[in-house]
Amino acid sequence: MENQHFKNKQSSGLLSKLIARYFEKQQESAVDSPDFESEKVYQRVWDAISEKQHRIVKLKRNLRIAAFFTLFAGAGGMAWYMNKQPSQMAMVEQSAARGETRFVELPDGTKVWLNADSKLRYPAGFKGKERHVELTGEAYFEVVSLPEKPFVIQTRDMKTEVLGTSFDVRAYSDNNRSEVTVLSGKVVVTAPGADTLHVTADHKLTYDRRDKQMQRQVVNAPDVIGWRFGKMIYRSREMQEVVADIERRYNIRIRYNEKIGKCTITADFHNEGLDKMLKVMAKLIDGTVTHRDGGYHLDGHGCE
């Protein structure tokens, strides 16, 4: 019944014309919809894109991505140099400066989002038995599954081995704790002086280099990678660690008295802006935040 009407080209043309005019007009007076869930849809866009890409023949993808990298090297002034490893493979270094995050696609199609003040080194092509990369800082990985070629991330202390999954690694050099949070799949983590542990979806592993202890806990994994979308979500985090995150994110210095560094806070920040965040943090510890002498100061009595 309905189809019969749509066969009428004339009437369909009529609606096309009106709708085309409507959108033309909208284009001129473009307003942002306040209800649009931009981040959610953006995530879905990439999910759909990566699903499509996985269907592309592997060989073709490798060729395509090789071209992609050359381009980046030309434009971005990337550091290329020969590494002393037996493979003699050129190593690529990509980094996100303080105040920015960065997306990197590896030669195998693996997607990496680098958080602020983080650095990733990897070979220009993955040859040999495993895909080996080195990380300082924090990054979220969506690893392309290649069961015969494990993906290995080396940080200062930890070695994280995966077969194809998505997860976040956090290993800033100013922090004694390193973390791996898994969103899907399974990873194997080893570190000096500690057991080898498996981490599965929605679990976080924390390694502390001081006591060489590994700890596993259940977390809401999407919260952990909220930084990809500008969110900062903390569950019982020490103030000093949150402050370090904010310093990296906004590329600023925040001074605070030692007493409050050990206070733990729980808070969700969704792109509220620096001033608002600092106010909330001050309130949480019953303290104050001031801006003086060209810097921010957090003060409080500390938490017992």
Binding site: Q27, A30, V31, D32, S33, D35, F36, S38, V41
Partner: peptide
């Protein structure tokens, strides 16, 4: 490009 236009396109589509 997404940031610049997605919410506008959504607004236009939703209005209709």
């Amino acid at each position: 490009i997404y940031k610049r236009y997605s919410a506008k396109l959504y607004h236009a589509a939703y209005n209709l």
